[in-house]
Design a binder for these strands. Structure first.
Lengths: 335, 335
DNA sequence: TTGTATGCGTTATCAT
DNA sequence: ATGATAACGCATACAA
């Protein structure tokens, strides 16, 4: 079933039908609108997307681009990413768009992908530091929002959380609970995000005149096993009484790893996460963590994206979302 | 950059370029193939998908369709689904296809969606029982694979696991460990899958001459909170010493909920899950569970789908994947 | 308010 | 082996 057939059935031209489909009611009399709509409905007519896209030079596709990580692991093994993607798809659908997901590693791949599909908008989740954003933006007309990115590019649209504040809060909380020898367990990637979180940790320590000990910096993969390995290393430094991490999933790994070394959380080791995943409220002990409000993050990403796609241009290029500490059971008060 | 421009640069016709792009080398001399390829590469030319799709009546899109669940929850809050989707995207990309994800609830929506985009293939993850598969297949040319579906339709392509065996194994394991009063905690949906799992449970009991007690059937939502609620109900029946569930996420909820009722797992209550999620190996206590080999499930789904898309037609319509029990720490031996 | 001509970028068909 | 022409289904621009 095509526009042409509908037009014939209605005894009008293709353009009149097209205008009705696209809700350009100012160009069609109410009477014909109704007549055509009825025929469309009766015949279950649905416009062909490919034709539409080709003709209008735009798809209704929003790409959700996730990093291509560790060899055989799926990016969705990280629950944070998974949760975010789920939220995004829902909002996109509400806006009449379609979500295409793609795990991508190189700039060239990205450019090709966005261009060949005429992707209207893209959301990069935790983009790798090594892709050149300026270059990307120059070669593509797609509106792009980066989540959790600290690329140095003023033109880039970015949604971040207050990474510095997050670790500052968790470290301060530990100090207030009497901890001094606090481990910092982070991802083994070297980017601005980690840098900021490390800075928040250091500043909280220095503020209370606690020296920063570089031996307490542990870096591992962001996954459960990363946490387990970190716990093993931490267990060897017996003076350490607490650890903050840059991901809940790592914190949960630490809790498990600590057990392997005969330590229990929080009796022997206090742990604070970062993310506030659903699971963190159900693991044992329940994880004290930094909530980064994933729902709001997703919503802001969509808001910003459509602000540009629909050329409203009211929101700033960079949006920072506040964080706060969720007090649960993985920290022991030493006082 | 279009085919036309490439053709002009090469001094040939559009069709020659098109044939090169589509690897129809039998129709082009090797010399021109090389010449055109060089020009394509130099100009970073990428064929336009919309035009291609329109002309060839096929997209290179595979839809991953997930159920639209509980009001404000994203489907990805279920880690099982998330893991599966991640695996699927990867395999699709390897095959030169693109993954569009869509949460859908009704048949009409589904038909419209598949048709408007000329979707080549679709994978339904845990489809709702209430969509009429026969009707769907009739109205769509898309090849569709259903995962975890027991729709009564011989033509439907389906990947299932041995649901019956799963709960049979877990129940038998509990019995062998001295348990008799065993709760069955399932989803509150009423479908064949649950029915089979319940049957496995019942048969294992009857095999050992243990009467089936319908009071021990608990049904809740498939999420952490569902497990917590189940635990509360189970705690009231003090004679119950063990529970099997139809999802790890529920089992983890039970572990947490048991604590709220002053019970600890496995001392006071043994629990067995179903799925073998990554997290189940890191929660406390580590969850004894039924492994359903998600990776294999995803791979088989893709295999079956492409077997039909590429008209090889070698695989059967229905494929059942084996399951096995993973012994960990959430079951106590009463003997 | 409605209709006509043309183009979007590619592929299929039929010639050469 | 290569090319000309039409067709895919819709939307834009302009005319009536």
């Amino acid at each position: 079933m095509t526009i042409k057939e509908i037009a014939e059935l209605a005894g009008v031209s293709q353009m009149t039908v097209s205008n009705v489909i696209n809700h350009k009611y100012s160009k069609v009399s109410k009477k014909t609108v109704d007549k055509i709509n009825k025929i469309i409905e009766k015949n279950n007519y649905i416009p062909n997307r490919s034709a539409r896209n080709l003709s209008s030079q735009s798809s209704k596709i929003i790409a959700i681009i996730v990093p291509l990580i560790y060899n055989d692991e799926s990016f969705f093994s990280d629950p944070y990413t998974a949760q975010l993607v789920g939220l995004l798809e829902k909002d996109l659908r509400k806006n009449g768009y379609f979500a295409m997901i793609r795990s991508i590693s190189t700039l060239e791949e990205t450019v090709s992908f966005l261009n060949e599909w005429n992707i209207d908008g893209a959301i990069f989740i935790f983009p790798k530091a090594n892709i050149d954003v300026k270059n990307l933006l120059d070669r593509v007309s797609t509106k792009i929002v980066f989540i959790d990115s600290y690329q140095e590019c003023d033109d880039a649209l970015v949604i971040n959380i207050d990474d510095y504040k997050g670790t500052y809060l968790s470290t301060k909380y530990l100090i207030n609970n009497g901890h001094k020898n606090i481990a910092f367990v982070s991802a083994n990637s070297n980017n601005k995000l980690i840098e900021l979180r490390y800075q928040g940790y250091k500043d909280a320590l220095l503020e209370k005149n606690i020296a920063v000990n570089s031996d307490y910096y542990f870096s591992n993969e962001i996954c459960l096993n990363g946490g387990i390995e970190a716990a093993r290393a931490i267990a060897e430094k017996k003076e350490i009484t607490a650890a903050i991490t840059t991901a809940d999933i790592v914190a949960i790994g630490i809790i498990d790893g600590a057990r392997l070394s005969g330590l229990s959380v929080p009796q022997d080791l206090s742990v604070i996460g970062f993310d506030n995943l659903t699971i963190s409220n159900y693991c044992y002990p329940k994880l004290t963590t930094i909530d980064q409000n994933i729902a709001k993050k997703g919503k802001m990403a969509i808001d910003l994206l459509f602000d540009r796609i629909e050329k409203r241009n009211q929101l700033p290029n960079k949006i920072k979302i506040d964080v706060n500490l969720i007090e649960r059971q993985s920290v022991r008060n030493l006082k």
